[in-house]
Simulated scan of single mutants.
Amino acid sequence: MSHRTISVTDMACTGCEENVEDALEALDGISAVEADHEADTVEIEADDGVSDEEVAAAIEDAGYEVAG
């Protein structure tokens, strides 16, 4: 299990946070998600088998951009 912080742009409100959280919670191996539109970050707890690419793809599919 690992804790990761991801920089996400384009989140403007709590609804955006919920969209990102829902997209990530749908991935197998994600046990906790907390998005913060004011800090432009998403904190996740994920199994080591969940790749950064999978996480980024889920965020981008929800309509947001992963920074860096």
Score class of each variant (00 low, 15 high):
residue 44 I to H: 01
residue 22 D to H: 10
residue 36 D to P: 11
residue 5 T to E: 14
residue 21 E to R: 07
residue 16 C to T: 10
residue 7 S to M: 11
residue 5 T to K: 11
residue 45 E to Q: 13
residue 15 G to W: 08
residue 30 I to R: 02
residue 51 S to R: 01
residue 18 E to K: 14
residue 15 G to T: 11
residue 39 A to Q: 13
residue 53 E to L: 09
residue 41 T to A: 05
residue 20 V to H: 04
residue 66 V to D: 01
residue 6 I to C: 08
residue 29 G to L: 09
residue 32 A to S: 14
residue 62 A to Q: 05
residue 41 T to H: 00
residue 10 D to T: 14
residue 50 V to M: 07
residue 4 R to Y: 02
residue 19 N to W: 00
residue 57 A to P: 03
residue 11 M to W: 06
residue 8 V to Q: 04
residue 10 D to E: 15
residue 18 E to W: 09
residue 46 A to D: 06
residue 15 G to N: 09
residue 22 D to Q: 13
residue 51 S to Q: 01
residue 61 D to G: 00
residue 66 V to T: 02
residue 34 E to R: 13
residue 26 A to C: 07
residue 43 E to F: 09
residue 7 S to K: 13
residue 61 D to Q: 10
residue 56 A to M: 01
residue 7 S to C: 01
residue 23 A to F: 08
residue 22 D to V: 12
residue 23 A to P: 11
residue 18 E to A: 15
residue 53 E to C: 01
residue 63 G to A: 03
residue 63 G to K: 00
residue 36 D to G: 09
residue 27 L to E: 08
residue 59 I to F: 05
residue 43 E to L: 11
residue 22 D to A: 15
residue 23 A to W: 06
residue 62 A to V: 02
residue 7 S to E: 14
residue 20 V to S: 07
residue 33 V to A: 04
residue 40 D to E: 15
residue 66 V to Y: 03
residue 55 V to D: 02
residue 51 S to A: 08
residue 22 D to P: 02
residue 35 A to T: 11
residue 43 E to N: 11
residue 14 T to D: 12
residue 47 D to T: 12
residue 66 V to A: 01
residue 57 A to Q: 14
residue 14 T to A: 13
residue 58 A to C: 08
residue 44 I to M: 07
residue 43 E to Q: 13
residue 68 G to H: 02
residue 49 G to I: 04
residue 47 D to V: 07
residue 52 D to V: 00
residue 62 A to K: 02
residue 19 N to E: 13
residue 12 A to L: 10
residue 17 E to F: 09
residue 43 E to G: 00
residue 28 D to I: 06
residue 28 D to G: 13
residue 64 Y to R: 01
residue 53 E to H: 07
residue 66 V to F: 01
residue 58 A to G: 07
residue 18 E to P: 00
residue 68 G to P: 01
residue 17 E to A: 12
residue 3 H to S: 14
residue 15 G to M: 09
residue 65 E to D: 15
residue 8 V to R: 03
residue 66 V to S: 05
residue 30 I to K: 02
residue 64 Y to A: 05
residue 22 D to T: 15
